[in-house]
């Protein structure tokens, strides 16, 4: 039981690394969808964020849907405040680093308050930064995922041996 428990914990930690890289990739997809909404349909943010959220799967969608809900509920709420609430909900669901959170927060500061051209530039910049972050998250995943997968079981085995 000890081996299983420690092994399970190890697998869970390994899954966190996997999920972080996946989230960053899905967020980039989300930003691409938002770019389409802004470029071709000039959709206002509450609807655009809602639509993007609906098209995404997994936990990553919450950043978009939460921000959209807040914008619709609290009329007059600044876009960056709504986006920050979205980031908070996302970081509660998925582990992302402080650096990645700050990329998203900086993107939120420029969201909605300028012309289309500037919005598209802002999205491109955020996508680029998230892409870099995804690369480093992938490297961390490669480095740590296997280690944690084995380490949990090894640690459990050591405890059992010590107990015996």
């Amino acid at each position: 039981m000890i081996i299983c428990g420690c092994g399970y914990t190890g697998l869970k930690i390994a899954a966190v690394y996997q999920k972080r890289a996946d989230t960053l990739r899905i967020l980039q997809n989300g930003l691409s969808l938002l770019e389409t909404e802004i470029r071709y349909a000039s959709t206002p943010l509450p609807q655009a964020l809602q639509r993007v959220g609906e098209k995404l799967n997994r936990e990553s969608r919450v950043i978009f849907t939460r921000a959209a809900d807040i914008m619709q509920l609290r009329e007059g709420c600044a876009v960056s405040e709504a986006w920050d609430a979205g980031i908070k909900t996302l970081s509660e669901a998925v582990w992302i680093s402080a650096e990645e959170t700050s990329i998203l927060a900086l993107f939120g500061k420029g969201l909605g308050n300028s012309a289309k051209e500037d919005q598209l530039k802002n999205i491109a910049l955020a996508k680029e930064q998230l892409h870099m972050a995804e690369k480093s998250a992938a490297a961390a995943r490669e480095k740590n995922k296997r280690m944690w997968q084995y380490m949990g079981f090894c640690f459990g085995t050591v405890i059992v041996l010590l107990l015996v």
Binding site: S42, P44, L45, P46, G76, A115
Partner: peptide
Amino acid sequence: ERNLEILSQGSLYAWE
């Protein structure tokens, strides 16, 4: 400014 935020739904790009 708050009125503008509400009118534009925080999306100035949508109303160019």
